[in-house]
């Protein structure tokens, strides 16, 4: 079954305004890890909001786990599609970590004991169990985002969407988040939609898609997408530093293949010299 399926979806924020998403056909398989790339204003965040019913499409249909999204089943859909947003400070409702993680589970009316178990599970899954009774305000950005992921996990969703959840974090916080979602995808089998403007974060995904002006313009394995550098640049996506280095070395006559992994590049260089 498809986890998410967009069929010819269009959406604009204002009538007569420009389309944020235009005739979009796009789907995600269950258990898949898909990275959605695009610069600011490319429509990638709109995609996230459409997928869990925060926005309603003007045209086209959206199916989540086979169910057509409509007003009546909105909350069933949201239980299955968790969204983590950009700003770590604007997603937590409670002062204490466990109270915040409990929020979603309380909303759907789970029993007390079950909520307790879900908190255990969710905090463990994001590696924050020792912070259970800490104050959210005192955590680092990466830790706050992990709490936000835990808050979503407590609902046991089948799909998690990260809507630029790494944009405001430092490099270490970004890595923490990417590690956590990769693990959730592999160990819990959760479908992951990672929306980002950092190409290197897409490396671990099964598939990368690039959006520009509300349209899907590129699609393929991350490596295949990154290989089309000139095209990426026209969509205002910059190569990560390692890509720039590969390119320069090649321009200097060294025969190294494109990679986003420092280990691999070192190996490549070693093979080119004596």
């Amino acid at each position: 079954m498809k986890a998410i399926e967009f069929a010819d979806v269009s959406f604009r924020y204002e009538e007569e305004g420009p389309f944020a998403v235009r005739h979009l056909n796009f789907s995600v398989e269950e258990g898949e890890f898909v990275a959605v790339l695009g610069h600011n204003g490319s429509g990638k965040s709109t995609l996230a909001r459409l997928a869990n019913g925060l926005l309603t499409p003007d045209e086209g249909q959206i199916r989540v786990l086979g169910t057509l999204l409509g007003d009546k089943n909105l909350y069933d859909v949201r239980r299955n599609v968790g969204v983590v947003f950009q700003n770590p400070d604007n997603q937590t409702v409670a002062t204490i970590v466990e109270d915040d993680v409990a929020f979603g589970a309380e909303n759907v009316g789970l029993a007390r004991e079950e909520i307790g178990r879900r908190i255990d599970f969710a905090l463990k899954a994001v590696g924050m169990e020792e912070y259970r009774t800490s104050t959210v305000a005192r955590l680092s950005g990466g830790q706050k985002q992990r709490v936000a992921i835990a808050g979503v996990l407590a609902l046991k969703p089948k799909i998690i969407i990260l809507d630029e959840s790494t944009a405001m974090l430092d490099p270490r916080g970004r890595r923490e988040i990417v590690d956590v979602v990769t693990r959730l995808n592999q160990e819990e089998g959760i479908t992951v939609l990672l929306i980002t403007h950092f190409l290197e974060e897409a490396l671990l995904a099964d598939r990368a898609v690039v959006m520009n002006r509300g349209e899907l313009v590129m699609e393929g394995t991350p490596r295949a997408v990154f290989a089309r550098k000139e095209e990426l640049l026209t969509y205002n996506l910059a190569l990560p530093r390692i890509g720039v280095i590969c390119e320069r070395l090649r321009a200097g006559g060294m025969n190294v293949a494109d990679t986003l992994d420092a280990e691999v590049l070192a190996k490549e260089i070693a093979q080119c010299v004596s």
């Binding site: 405001m168 950092f198 190409l199 205002n236 996506l237 190569l239």
Partner: peptide
């Protein structure tokens, strides 16, 4: 440069 995309 916090919060900007790589090009930014």
């Amino acid at each position: 440069a916090a919060g900007l995309d790589p090009l930014g």
